[in-house]
């Protein structure tokens, strides 16, 4: 073995081929096969507006603190039913996440359906949850002296609202909230029949 590995061609090619095979079977093939997972019952593609909101979510790195995977564990049931493979058919890039500095959002559209709550929370999380460590996303909003007819005014609680101006949503904020509201876990078939 040692004598063979003193040959540079063997030393380079041997491990290269072994790793290439392992990469094929542990990375590429599972990736390609699982990419073909068909959507679960009731799992629908995102609307164009929600899809653009998903892009905002990705862009701002929301999934560094919010997972989108409900584990089949008792402590996760507060976030929804356990996630299934079919839930992710339209979720590219995948946003399962690795850390919960904030709650899981797999089913946030059902758990918090109010867009007013989402707008206020995005503008200043601590105005709603005093111990929250979520960053404020002020750049998704605009300050105006007077709201126009078509503007959505965010009723920021006193003490957090800017003085002499109103907070109105930008298109990104509306898209992001449309995405959050669209995150509703489809009921599993057995439950749907009941």
């Amino acid at each position: 073995m040692n004598r063979g590995m003193n040959n540079i061609v063997v030393l380079v090619a041997g491990p290269f081929i072994i790793y290439a095979i392992l990469a094929l079977f542990m990375g590429a093939i599972p990736g390609a096969v699982l990419s073909k997972t068909s959507p679960g019952p009731g799992v629908m593609p995102f609307s164009p507006q929600a899809q653009r909101g998903r892009d905002v979510y990705v862009s701002e790195g929301c999934s560094y603190c919010h997972t989108q995977q409900v584990r089949p564990l008792k402590q996760d049931l507060v976030f929804g039913r356990p996630s299934t493979a079919g839930d992710y058919a339209y979720s590219t890039p995948q946003l399962l996440g690795s850390e919960r500095n904030g709650p899981d959002l797999s089913n946030i559209g059902s758990r918090q359906p109010s867009d007013v709550w989402q707008y206020i929370h995005l503008y200043e999380p601590r105005s709603l949850v005093s111990m929250s460590i979520m960053p404020p996303y002020r750049w998704l909003f605009q300050l105006k002296a007077h709201a126009d007819v078509n503007d959505i005014v965010v009723p920021v609680p006193p003490g957090y609202a800017p003085k002499g101006a109103v907070v109105v949503t930008t298109q990104e904020a509306r898209e992001l909230v449309a995405y959050l509201k669209s995150l509703k876990q489809a009921p599993l078939t057995s439950r749907a029949k009941r």
């Binding site: 491990p15 990375g27 590429a28 990736g31 390609a32 699982l34 990419s35 073909k36």
Partner: peptide, 29 residues
């Protein structure tokens, strides 16, 4: 350097990775 070349190519090629398949590649990567 050999392994990382293979790994980098496997991970960077986007077209075959969707949804849960991308999760599998991500764990590997």
């Amino acid at each position: 350097y050999s392994f990382t070349t293979i790994l980098g190519v496997t991970a960077a090629i986007p077209f075959y990775q969707r949804g849960l398949g991308q999760v599998a590649v991500q764990g590997f990567y």
